[in-house]
């Protein structure tokens, strides 16, 4: 993974060949385009328009994968909208929904019994918080959390937004606020702060932008790999 100009690791969006290709219904090269849904006709049906939920987004984003949208509606009304954007996607839109988040989604929530093929590889590369309603399907990373009740899941999502570690907390919209008031644009640091004290079952190299964001600050925390669990967390 190569840091890009923004200091982040290689963004999901640069890999459209992976995300979208495996998704039935996204129309091959037309990943992210919407067909024949809703009350519309014309342009959206013809695949000319992109569904708003699949439009590129640089703010902190939460992708919800479900068959009927009820989970997304609940989370959208529960979570502070200036803190996170909820993208309501169907299983066949999973790849397009993930790639629309720049550099990657802050969180993935779902209730599907089977994971769309495009999701697993993305979650294996990037620190995305994963919350699941019901039993976690095969293919989710070890750091994902599953819940039997919606209220518990919504509480966990809310707590992840409000997390604070050593004076570092999520900023409004995107990025993290450092104790000295500066804003750091690091999606991997956002993920680590939200997951704290837990972490991610990912290689340490996935957290390069977090290391850079914290270096030179008064914060003594750094991404560290637990020698036993091999998970990376702030410590």
């Amino acid at each position: 993974m190569v840091p890009n100009a923004a200091g982040e690791l290689h963004p999901l969006s640069s890999r459209p060949h992976r995300l979208g290709r495996d998704d039935p219904g996204t129309g091959g090269g037309n990943a992210g385009q919407r067909r024949g849904r809703g009350r519309g006709s014309g342009a959206v049906k013809a695949g000319i328009l992109t569904l708003g939920a699949l439009a590129p987004e640089r703010d902190r984003s939460l992708v919800v994968l479900s068959r009927d949208g009820e989970l997304a509606v609940g989370l959208r009304e529960r979570l502070e909208r200036d803190r996170v954007l909820v993208k309501d996607a169907r299983p066949h839109e999973a790849g397009a929904a993930l790639t629309s988040c720049r550099p990657w989604p802050w969180m993935l929530v779902g209730d599907l019994a089977e994971l769309p093929a495009s999701v697993g590889p993305a979650l294996a590369r990037y620190p995305v918080l994963v919350l699941w309603l019901g039993p976690a399907p095969r293919g989710l990373p070890a750091h994902s959390r599953d819940f039997s009740r919606y209220a518990e899941l919504a509480d966990a999502a809310s707590r992840a937004l409000e997390g604070e570690v050593g004076g570092v907390r999520l900023a409004t919209g995107a990025g993290v606020e450092l104790p000295d008031g500066r804003l750091a644009r690091s999606a991997s640091l956002e993920a680590l702060v939200s997951a704290h004290p837990a972490g991610f079952d990912l290689p340490l190299r996935c957290f390069g932008s977090a290391v850079r964001a914290l270096s030179g600050t008064e914060v003594s925390l750094r991404p560290r790999r637990d020698p036993v669990t091999r998970w990376v967390s702030l410590g």
Binding site: G38, G40, S41, A43, V44, L49, T50, L51, G52, A55
Partner: peptide
């Protein structure tokens, strides 16, 4: 005219006038 819906207009607003 019924060739586009409110949903279509919202999609355009989301993408082109975010």
């Amino acid at each position: 005219e019924q060739s586009s819906s409110s949903s279509d207009a919202l999609c355009v607003l989301a993408r082109d006038a975010s």
